[in-house]
Design a protein around this nucleic acid. Structure first.
Lengths: 202, 202
DNA sequence: CTACTAACATACGCTTCGTATGCCAATTGA
DNA sequence: TCAATTGGCATACGAAGCGTATGTTAGTAG
């Protein structure tokens, strides 16, 4: 008795995604040979084209998987914070920490945008920004954040700053020290969103 | 009587860079066939490999050219501004405006990083950030900007936010309206750098 | 039990890149 | 002025890599 059909298929898809994710994350999308990484999964390009259409389709699947993982991690960490503003700040710093990982940096911030275009237009990959937008909206309603900014816009801008922050830390010769410097500057920028600069909630 | 040798060579290089810049900026680096765009310049890949080593080398040359152009434009616009802080803000908004152009967006912010890695590590392409860093340093000395942030770090973070800002505007269905929303949020973030939030110099 | 469908593999042609080689014009030195 | 040499650029060739078209096999439905 063999395994059920559905399971075999899901397993094949998962193996392809995992192999591609590893190849994309290490040598990069353009340098990753489909023949090579499908073979490393014990398959051929035939399976890839059947399930994902083409190389870009597989990249989309990889990105969707990584995005949901990232969103889960962000929500998990940020859920324990005293104030909502702190919650939001934790969300951002967690995002920066994740962006330090080479695989995420390469696939989500480098090759992904180059191959698929503006991340804001990706179908299943905006969970993190969505979460940040929600928190900013709440903070605005509570009067913590200035009412003049559009939450999603602010979330996107912060996202861009975060990715630069991560790159700066990742490429530093002294990541520990650089991390402190970068996070300090980053938090200072965030304070521009606060309504009253006097009593900060930290 | 022919033109001097040196001129012919410089012309060849310029034609290759121009053709590549157009191809990279429209269809993208990966899709740009070296045979095609060298032919459009009346040359072959032989000239390309002779002058630039490989496709990446040509991209580097294109980026160096664009970077110096961008720096010149930024300095030109920002040089007329009443206060130094305004000067800095103008620099940023000019940067965003430039980032709206598809060619700049594609080459400098998408394909460039994907092919050549972290822009902060590029040899001849940091003029804009350098200028912003200088102004932040001055502003800090004058007490306008909080002393706790590292100028170059702040400049990089703002750079990241700027690129996101431009993308958001560029991909909007109503660029005019989106532009206002985005610039508002962007300026708000910048105010996080100000020392005293009460008397703003605008 | 038969026929059909879906999951994959194999095979082929096309495009593209990089290198090796060749040619020609321009400079150099006498 | 005339070799000799250098350097700018084209041509030719081989090696990948991608996408498609075509099998082949194993489940599945009637």
């Amino acid at each position: 008795m063999h395994k059920p059909r559905k399971e075999m298929i899901a397993e094949t898809r998962a193996k392809l995604i995992a192999a591609a994710r590893h190849a994309f994350g290490t040598i990069g999308y353009a340098q990753a040979s489909m023949d090579d990484f499908t073979a490393s999964a014990g398959l051929t390009r035939g399976a890839l084209y059947h399930h994902f259409g083409d190389k870009k389709g597989l990249l989309q699947a990889v990105i969707a998987e990584m995005d949901s993982e990232m969103a889960a991690r962000v929500n998990e960490v940020a859920s324990r914070a005293p104030t909502r503003w702190q919650h939001f700040v934790d969300e951002c710093t967690t995002y920066i920490e994740m962006a330090l990982e080479p695989e995420i940096q390469r696939i989500m911030f480098r090759d992904g945008p180059a191959v698929l275009g503006d991340p804001a237009q990706w179908p299943n990959a905006n969970a993190c920004v969505g979460s940040m937008t929600d928190h900013l909206t709440r903070l605005q309603e509570e009067g913590v954040v200035v009412p003049s900014v559009d939450p999603e816009t602010a979330a996107r801008l912060i996202n861009g700053a975060s990715s630069q922050a991560a790159q700066r830390i990742a490429n530093s010769s002294d990541p520990e020290a650089t991390s402190k410097t970068v996070v300090t500057a980053f938090k200072q920028l965030l304070e521009g969103l606060l309504n009253k600069p006097g009593p900060r909630p930290d």
